[in-house]
Design a protein around this nucleic acid. Structure first.
Length: 431
RNA sequence: GUGGGUGUAGCUCAGCUGGUUAGAGCGCCAGACUGUGGAUCUGGAUGUCGAGGGUUCGAAUCCCUCCACUCACCCCA
């Protein structure tokens, strides 16, 4: 099959009923975050390329080789955001929010772009649901953000997830740790690939992400980030763990956890799922106390996380709650106008349900056959199977000012005056 | 960027070591059937067999190149 047009590599169409699940997950996210005092922020997809080079880190792979960067018509270098924290921080500074009352609580939902080879769970256009909390340097910030996160995950039906936790300390401890790590690995680096040698030279922490057995072996007995923490970071980390335990949040220390973005300080965390492929991280986050200042704002501490919405939805156990559904079947096109009026009344009587008119008006038989097909798919489409009704509008009904209501699950049906429609359907829904 | 796998109808796939008009099931449309369902029967539409080139009397089938999809590395959500 040779299609003239197809979606761009790494992008995809989200079709019903999956698109309905996304909408529901986003609704739950908004409801949860709002109840904790977080408000939505929407920032542009396009930003100045330098913003990401400065924030995400010039030695990271994201900036190195994964950005959608291009010159606009005036020759300015623009980039489609590979993540949303940098844009949020830029917006917070630019609009004066960083100088306003703290804490500042924000969340976002939207598409992000990275120019990578697609594979299971990884796309060039993907969506993230993220949260950023500004202005709180104490461990209460970690506790709040993680407790809210777990409330959201539980609302999506997750039960067994645990968050992996580590501390990368301050930039100073990070540098010291990097040096120590390099001295440990360098003598054992024979057999390293080109990429790993580059990482060793530029950003040795990143070696922890490697799946190469040679690298893994070289990391045996390597120093750990926690051993290099300054006193304050050490205490901060201990307090975070205490607060998480108090809040009943399942977590596990992971000394090898090093996030891929350079701006993290102290706390970093992530959650992985066994039900995904090789790309198993469903969310990641951490503290970034220096980022606001380094992007030209005041010195404001901050913490946040980003959930990969595509991966989240792939493994989230929740299902759509069933909706009542009514199909109005005109016998012939002559009956269509009346059927549309009947449907209008039913919509008013059954808020939150769905009412469909069979616009093809191909006769009662075909209409009911179609209704049956819909009935079969009801559960997959998130419809309330038991409550599905067909409303027949034909010659006889119009002559008598009546409608016929048929319950699809049982086949029982009843004809009654149109004036009783709302009342009868209300009762039928209860039954 | 590197490697593996796969490309035949809307979907799932069959098509043996090359053989002439390219198939099945499901789905779709119509009729049987102008007022009662998931059934049945009949008919119909949709394919440059991923694309281009080569070998051959003859290619969906063999060879080459390219493209797309997919999985993994890398990296991350």
């Amino acid at each position: 099959m040779t299609l003239r047009y197809r979606s761009v590599k790494g992008t995809r169409d989200l079709l019903p009923p999956e698109s309905e699940r996304w909408a529901e997950a986003e609704r739950i996210a908004r409801e949860t975050f709002r109840s904790w005092g977080y408000a939505e922020i929407r920032t542009p997809v396009l930003e100045d390329t330098a913003l990401f080079e400065r924030s995400v880190g010039e030695t990271t792979d994201i900036v190195h080789k994964e950005m959608y960067t291009f010159p606009d018509r005036k020759g300015r270098s623009l980039t489609m955001r590979p993540e949303n924290t940098a844009g949020v921080v830029r917006a917070v500074i630019e609009n004066g929010l960083a100088a306003g009352p703290m804490p500042l609580r924000l969340y976002y939902i939207g598409p992000q772009f990275r120019y990578e080879r697609p594979q299971a769970g990884r796309f060039r256009e993907f969506s993230q649901i993220g949260v950023e909390l500004f202005g709180i340097s104490g461990p209460a910030a970690e506790a709040e953000v993680l407790e809210m996160l777990f409330e959201f995950l539980r609302a999506l039906g997750f039960r067994a997830l645990s968050v992996a936790l580590n501390s990368v300390g301050t930039p100073a401890t990070r540098t010291a740790f990097g040096e120590a790590l390099r001295s440990h690995v360098l003598p054992r680096s024979t057999g390293f690939g080109e990429d790993d040698l580059r990482k060793l030279a530029e950003n040795p922490l990143r070696l922890f992400d490697s799946k190469d057995p040679v690298v893994r072996a070289a990391l045996e007995g390597a120093p750990r980030t926690v051993d290099f923490l300054d006193v304050a970071s050490r205490r901060h980390h201990d307090e975070v763990r205490g607060l998480l335990a108090d809040a009943g949040i399942p977590f596990a220390e992971n000394p090898a956890l090093v996030r891929g973005l350079d701006y993290y300080t102290r706390t970093v965390f992530e959650i992985v799922s066994e039900d995904l492929g090789a790309q198993d991280a469903i969310l990641g986050g951490g503290r970034y106390d220096g980022l606001v200042e380094s992007l030209g704002g005041p010195s404001v501490p901050a913490i946040g996380f980003a959930i990969g919405e595509d991966r989240l939805l792939q493994v989230a156990p929740f299902r759509l709650s069933p909706r009542a559904c009514v199909l109005v079947l005109p016998q012939r096109t002559d009956d269509l106008a009346e059927a549309v009026r009947v449907a209008r009344e039913i919509r008013a009587a059954l808020p939150g349900g769905c009412v469909e008119v069979d616009l093809s008006a191909r006769g009662i038989k075909k209409g009911l056959a179609r209704a049956s097909a819909l009935f079969d798919e009801a559960e997959a489409r998130g419809l309330d199977k038991k409550g599905m009704l067909a409303v027949l509008v034909g010659e006889r009904e119009r002559a008598d000012g009546a409608v016929t209501v048929k319950r699809l699950a049982t086949g029982e049906q009843e004809t009654f005056p149109r004036s009783e429609l709302a009342e009868r359907l209300g009762a039928a829904r209860e039954a």
